[in-house]
Write a protein that binds this DNA or RNA. Sequence first.
DNA 1: TCCGATATATATTGACTCGATACATAGCAG
DNA 2: CTGCTATGTATCGAGTCAATATATATCGGA
Lengths: 182, 182
Amino acid sequence: MDINNLCLGALSLGEASGYQIKKMFEKQFSHFQAASFGSIYPALAKLTEQGLVSFREETQEKRPTKKVFSITPAGRQQFAKNLRETEPSEQYRSDFMVLMTFAHLLPQERLTEVLERQTAQIKAELETLQEIYANNQRLTCGMRFTLEYGITVNQSLLALMEQRGDQLVLEIEMEKREASAP
Amino acid sequence: MDINNLCLGALSLGEASGYQIKKMFEKQFSHFQAASFGSIYPALAKLTEQGLVSFREETQEKRPTKKVFSITPAGRQQFAKNLRETEPSEQYRSDFMVLMTFAHLLPQERLTEVLERQTAQIKAELETLQEIYANNQRLTCGMRFTLEYGITVNQSLLALMEQRGDQLVLEIEMEKREASAP
DNA sequence: TCCGATATATATTGACTCGATACATAGCAG
DNA sequence: CTGCTATGTATCGAGTCAATATATATCGGA
């Protein structure tokens, strides 16, 4: 699923400027997709060219002029078609996991810090998702499901980090001592 | 964490050719990092230029000539330094979540298929991780932790999919009917 | 009051990465 | 004997990101 398509999807929920689409990626979609201006603006230009979205210019007082994009009927049709053909793939990239894989190369204080930071991150993400879930009545069933999905993951990870974190630091220190004096 | 660094990390576990490094990304590291030839070969060239890795050419019978790369002491030092400065960030990208967000635009059969496929994917990933965990004595504590992390996530997701999947299909169909005849 | 942070808004650039492809050889299954 | 899988090196085009440029405005703190 490329950014062209994701912009089409975002606009299928309502008209928006490039800046506002970026905000949507940072808020509603942040737990499963990301996009930068460097891909959003070219995508909107291309979609306009293809007649899948249109825009009107909105001059604002005390703010720069906005280009408000809307999805066209052709765009809506195209998005539904692309969606039907999209395979449910996933990709996960984690520097945290890399740090854990090579944890024996980290000083103990740094390892502790990394684990604490990761735990805090998970906690923050969990709270964000729970807040969206609780304070939003207009969510579709599908959206509610993605939130449940994210909440489930983060809850089980938080439990793992809290149960296993301190123990891991000790294990790694043991391993280091064994390696240096076998 | 860029691919240069990841290659350095891979080579810190033992010498390997570009092809073998790719295999490592597909096996040991597949649940948290990925890399293609298009990034691995340029990375190895750059690292060689910087003196962080070196290589010898190994002529094989009935096989193309191999370039076997090894990490140099300077490379090992650089990797440890980079690791200390790496922040534990994570990124997750999921077309499955996009499909769920816009599930109301999918035909029912396709939605069912997507959910089944996702469940199968999670099951497969879970089995792969459990197999590595069980059949490998040489793992470091850190590596074992990354496997536990992955197993935890996939177990809780599998439970969610099995509890919630069928129900979701019904909910979405209800929602569609309400939307078309309010 | 002025400085820096934050927010709204569009847009581009360089660097990085992926997926596909090319080239070369060989074994194995149908 | 054709196609698939495997080992191996390497590049190219297309897509993407992070940073930056350019404007303007608000708001809090020194």
